[in-house]
Simulated scan of single mutants.
Amino acid sequence: MFNISSWGFIIKFSTSLASSSLIIISILLLKSNFEMVEMKCKICGESRPYISKVFGICKECILEGGEAIKHVRKIHGEIRKKFNLPPEPPKDGNVKCNICSNKCRMKENEVGYCGLRMNIRGKLRSLVSDEEALLYTYLDPIPTNCCAAWFCPGCTGRGYPKYAYKNGPEYGFYNLASFFYGCNFDCVYCQNISHKNLWKAPKMTIEKFVNEVKNEKITCICYFGGSPEPQLPFAIKASKEALKLGKKILRICWEWNGCGNEKLVKRAAKIAGESGGIIKFDLKCFDENLSIALSGVSNKQAYKNFKMIGEKFFDRYDIPVLTATTLLVPGYVDKDEVRKISKFIAEINDEIPYQLLVFHPDYMMMDLPITPRKQVYECFNEAKKYLKNVDIGNIHLIT
Results as ranks from 00 to 15, higher is better:
residue 2 F to E: 14
residue 6 S to F: 09
residue 15 T to A: 11
residue 25 I to C: 10
residue 27 I to G: 07
residue 27 I to S: 07
residue 28 L to S: 10
residue 29 L to F: 06
residue 46 E to Q: 11
residue 47 S to D: 02
residue 47 S to R: 06
residue 53 K to Y: 11
residue 59 K to Y: 09
residue 59 K to V: 02
residue 62 I to W: 12
residue 64 E to H: 14
residue 70 K to I: 06
residue 70 K to L: 12
residue 77 G to H: 06
residue 78 E to T: 06
residue 83 F to V: 01
residue 91 K to A: 03
residue 93 G to Y: 10
residue 95 V to T: 05
residue 96 K to M: 09
residue 102 N to I: 13
residue 109 N to P: 01
residue 130 D to F: 09
residue 131 E to W: 03
residue 133 A to R: 02
residue 133 A to D: 02
residue 140 D to T: 07
residue 142 I to T: 07
residue 149 A to I: 04
residue 162 K to N: 15
residue 164 A to G: 04
residue 170 E to Q: 14
residue 177 A to I: 05
residue 182 G to W: 05
residue 185 F to D: 13
residue 197 N to S: 09
residue 214 K to G: 00
residue 225 G to C: 00
residue 227 S to T: 15
residue 237 K to E: 07
residue 238 A to R: 00
residue 250 L to N: 11
residue 251 R to D: 01
residue 259 C to D: 15
residue 261 N to K: 11
residue 271 I to C: 03
residue 271 I to S: 01
residue 272 A to P: 13
residue 277 G to F: 08
residue 279 I to Y: 10
residue 287 D to V: 10
residue 297 V to R: 11
residue 299 N to R: 09
residue 303 Y to S: 03
residue 309 I to M: 10
residue 310 G to E: 01
residue 316 R to T: 10
residue 317 Y to C: 10
residue 326 T to C: 09
residue 328 L to P: 06
residue 335 K to F: 08
residue 345 I to G: 10
residue 346 A to C: 12
residue 350 D to C: 03
residue 353 P to M: 02
residue 356 L to S: 11
residue 357 L to Y: 08
residue 359 F to H: 02
residue 360 H to Q: 06
residue 369 P to T: 00
residue 370 I to L: 01
residue 374 K to A: 06
residue 379 C to P: 10
residue 380 F to K: 15
residue 385 K to P: 12
residue 391 D to N: 15
